[in-house]
Write a protein that binds this DNA or RNA. Structure first.
Lengths: 231, 231
DNA sequence: AGGTTGATATGATAATTATCACAATGTAAT
DNA sequence: ATTACATTGTGATAATTATCATATCAACCT
């Protein structure tokens, strides 16, 4: 965890429009003054499952994973989030504790606002609450849709799905450095680590990918899309 | 679809507390006057995937399933909902069309309010919007948790999970009439119909269940719980 | 009554995925 | 530097699940 960055100001924040577009500059400034900005390095926990929810948190920079530890001790990854996708929101209005852990999978920066303050704002400013709810429902829908999409695919389709997710949605590039391990891919798609590794090797042998450790280059995009959609 | 029931009044509705507890009686009466109540028989579509969202809908009585048709034509069931669990809410603040179909799996009654009216209310009454968001986030959390729970289980554990869900959560009885077909169980847990049927037969042979068509009696509760949790 | 359809049921076999075993590499700690 | 440990990688085998074939039964239609 690095030091706070004093240069950040809500007024100039790219994320302001996300849920503060109906909040007056004065109110925003008040909130802003007591906000805390924190930096996390890749691998750091931002939120731990079971912790009390005391802050309203959103992601300014970076990439995180949402996960939980199942009763048998195995981790399950629910989704990945970049800025504009919400982070802490899933439980803050319905639970006292976080149901999921949030971990930085790239160096990340978050903003923390006092939850009681945000709740007070939400209780008085209906438009703010509407904006919040719209974001929240869009993200929830996305996660559910993604989970259903993965559910109906086989191993190869699931691995292709993850690769396309990072390529198309996160990095917007056919070459990228995979931010997660093979094990984490497995935890995300619900398969074993060995089978994820094997499948990646197959894709390499089939000249669909070039792989250098975590560096991935999608060579045959069409075929990968086809595998993702039709097995 | 049956006739409207003129006897229903919002003032006496059990569900009022759900999201109208911070709405004045006058406002509620205004909303109430233009509400439409509809009854559906088991099997009827209440909402079809892809339809434009024009109403705010909630379930007064009955039991429904949320599902979608995957690109390959196969159905996937996302969750089941009884009154107090929301129905239409998943997309109404983030999408113009329904992402999921809602089908009555028992005779059901819904209330329909004009969505623009509800949105206007949400934009002016922050407490109402907060209540709405709390319900919504609780339901979303529940669905996600349930999906993750199912994901980490094998066939037998998944079937046991569904049986316990209906027994514990829906009917609160060790005997109940299964409101869905074997195929629908399969669509819910992501396995084939044949394997669901086979597993039910195994449970019967193992004297865990008594089965008469759709009538289920859980005889060995402990063992079923154990299968659900540990395979 | 006869015919069609869909749901339930069961068995045999094929396909898919997990588990186990082991090796190589890389990385962090001391 | 060297031990310790996690990650990546591959093969053999076991376990799990899907597919296909077939049968029965009930509901519904004409």
């Amino acid at each position: 965890m690095l030091d706070n960055d004093p240069k950040c100001s809500c007024e100039n924040c790219d994320l302001k429009a996300l849920f503060f577009s109906h909040v007056t500059i004065e109110t925003l400034s008040n909130i802003c003054e007591i906000k805390i900005e924190k930096s996390f390095q890749k691998g750091d926990y931002i939120i731990r499952e079971g912790e009390a929810i005391k802050e309203f948190i959103y992601l300014k920079e970076g990439l995180v994973k949402l996960s939980r530890t199942a009763p048998d001790g195995k981790d399950q990854i629910l989704s990945f989030s970049k800025p504009f996708d919400f982070v802490s929101l899933f439980s803050i209005f319905s639970s006292d504790v976080y149901n999921y852990s949030v971990t930085a999978i790239e160096d990340s920066v978050i903003c923390m606002l006092d939850l009681d303050n945000v709740k007070r704002l939400a209780q008085t400013n209906a438009m703010f609450t509407m904006d919040l709810m719209s974001r929240f429902s869009a993200v929830a829908d996305l996660i559910l849709k993604d989970n259903l999409d993965i559910r109906r695919k086989h191993l190869r389709g699931r691995v292709a799905h993850v690769l396309l997710y990072f390529s198309n949605y996160i990095y917007k590039n056919s070459s990228f450095e995979l931010p997660i391990s093979r094990r984490e891919i497995a935890e995300y798609i619900g398969m074993t680590t060995e089978n994820v590794i094997r499948t990646l090797s197959e894709f390499r042998k089939d000249k669909i990918l070039k792989i250098y450790g975590k560096d991935i280059e999608i060579v045959d995009f069409k075929r990968l899309v086809n595998i993702s959609e039709h097995g």
